[in-house]
Design a protein around this nucleic acid. Structure first.
Lengths: 338, 338
DNA sequence: CTGAAAGCGCTTACAG
DNA sequence: CTGAAAGCGCTTACAG
């Protein structure tokens, strides 16, 4: 609030222009001048006023992160991972939570555009159908990168896991072990992430000429332990037999596993279980839960790199092509599916 | 990026001064003029440029949140709760994670001061000893509010739980049930939050003339299920008997409970267990885990209100007195401690 | 009730 | 290699 470029200019008896250029390493400034300016700035603790520079550069050094639900292991870890990279590169993250509401999500995007953030990293809610706001962002001054759960119909930068391939692989893994009545617990019917996973599930069945009983496909919004327990109970009470179980997170699998254990099933002999997110809790139960592990740190890394590349290209007035990165998730095999 | 105050002024054939005043509801502008300006602004989708106004008002409408570890239920839920209130009041949250490092924490505070955020809400890491940076913030233009884990030696706004009182109450509750060998798992020796809890634990013993065996006091950084299990195992193998167990979160209690169950203890008869954070996982185990419930939503509410009050007072050039709010946590009694 | 003008703290064409 | 000057988009004393 105190020290400005003027103070430096006055003290060093040079112009503010020169100070500004020196601070920003313009090539037309003498290296001695640069050194002198920088040293003095350092000494008196000068820090450029970001808001004043914005008026000319249109850069805020701010990045918006929008996630569907911050209060989950998956997203809080991913966001934490993004924050590290964002701050390391001299940006600051504005973190917004959509609480799985498309309405809130659109408000969040508007807020970020109003703030003129340099970039917006967003994973969509599981109920998001409209791409109106994403399109708005794309024609705004903020670079858009969608991740984890994105939209098929919009052409923008994407960083995703190999949802289809990993679920196909995992399903075939169960089929090869002799399972043919696999329950599949999906997050929603709308989210692309969930759709892709289901396609993988279906393809694995098609390839192996096994039909899918839709009664074993369950949509679960909550994704909690008790929800997993409840789902298992309902399947059981409805007389729907299963010999395999794949869910979109670990708590669901553990909840279900607990129910089946209580009701006399032996695991993995009677039913094989596979969760996702590879959380600690899964390794704590008996039998230990097999789970699909997503490398969140790598995802954060790729998102940030994509953004920085785009910023660099923008600076050179290049139009950067749309990019799509896919990260391989892997199955961590444990006792529940052996 | 496009529409400015000038465009409105030109279209309505009035001065930019009048437009600015009308938009900001200055009392010396006619109500018709105000209406006309606002309607037109709305119509053409004008949005004031925050960065330009900053240059005059020194307000960024940005709030920094700094937490010790975002990747926990406690903080991800609290942060999510704060984000809702911050955005509802027209601010935007910059969320930073200290990853339990005092070093990172101080860097985070510097980043936020540089950005000239209007407020900083911070919960300290469990290793933070220095108050240098907090003092810096207090003499900066950002209002400081510390919460959850704060520092005793600094006089600043605080919103905390009644750590001492609740642990005292819970400890006495166990003592009254006949327990006298209670294990206490604390987060650190440094954090005020942990210290206060321990004082409550000690006072309960003093009041009831029961001595504390330091071997039953364990510091656990991790706070995971497996850590709880490991701690129980060590106590057991060292021949340190316990008949009660209080930890700073639920996973530790569950981990420990699991070990003791495996080793022939019946719960709560042999050992009573009480966790904290009242997470779903606790209700899922047998016996269900008693837990201390902190109202995170209320904490977020109080933090925000304190901030808004201070902003209002600042506007009237009043110096606002330091405030301290304490929120009552409560014991949720379940089968593990009956 | 309204407006001309200065200024917030920077950046950047342009001139030298 | 350096600098004077205009300008980014607002707000706010001040004058009327």
């Amino acid at each position: 609030m105190k020290i400005t470029i003027k103070d430096i200019a006055k003290a060093l008896e040079i112009s503010t222009t020169t100070v500004s250029k020196a601070m920003n390493d313009y090539s037309d400034i003498g290296s001695e001048t640069k050194k002198k300016v920088k040293e003095y700035a350092e000494k008196i603790g000068y820090e450029p006023n970001i808001h004043a520079s914005f008026l000319r550069t249109k850069k805020t050094k701010l990045i918006g992160i929008v996630v569907p639900n911050l209060n989950t292991n998956f997203y809080s870890e991913l966001v934490a991972s993004l924050i590290v990279r964002i701050t390391k590169n001299g940006y600051l993250p504005i973190v917004l939570n959509s609480a799985e509401s498309e309405q809130v999500e659109s408000e969040n995007l508007e807020r970020l555009m109003r703030q003129k953030v340099d970039g917006i990293f967003i994973s969509l809610t599981k109920e998001t159908t409209s791409t109106v706001y994403l399109t708005k962002v794309m024609s705004s001054s903020s670079s858009l990168i969608t991740f984890s759960n994105t939209s098929k119909v919009i052409t923008c930068n994407k960083v995703v896991f190999n949802d289809k391939a990993i679920i196909k692989r995992v399903t075939e893994y169960l089929i090869n072990k002799g399972n043919s009545k696999i329950a599949f617990i999906r997050k929603s019917l709308i989210s692309q992430n969930s759709i892709n996973q289901f396609i993988g599930f279906r393809e694995a069945h098609e390839v192996n000429k096994i039909s899918i009983d839709n009664q074993r496909i369950v949509v679960s919004k909550q994704g909690t332990l008790s929800e997993g327990y409840r789902i298992a109970k309902e399947l059981f009470n409805s007389g729907i037999q299963i010999d395999g179980f794949i869910s979109y997170n670990d708590p669901l699998a553990i909840g279900a596993m607990t129910f089946y254990k209580e009701n006399g099933s032996t695991i993995p002999n009677d039913i094989r279980f596979i969760g996702q997110e590879n959380s600690e809790i899964g390794t704590f139960f008996t039998p230990e839960l097999s789970s699909i592990k997503q490398n969140l740190s790598l995802m954060a890394e790729k998102i940030m790199r994509l953004f920085l590349e785009e910023q660099a290209e923008l600076k050179q007035k290049k139009i950067s092509p749309i990019k799509r990165e896919e990260i391989k998730a892997e199955l961590i095999e444990r006792a529940s599916s052996i």
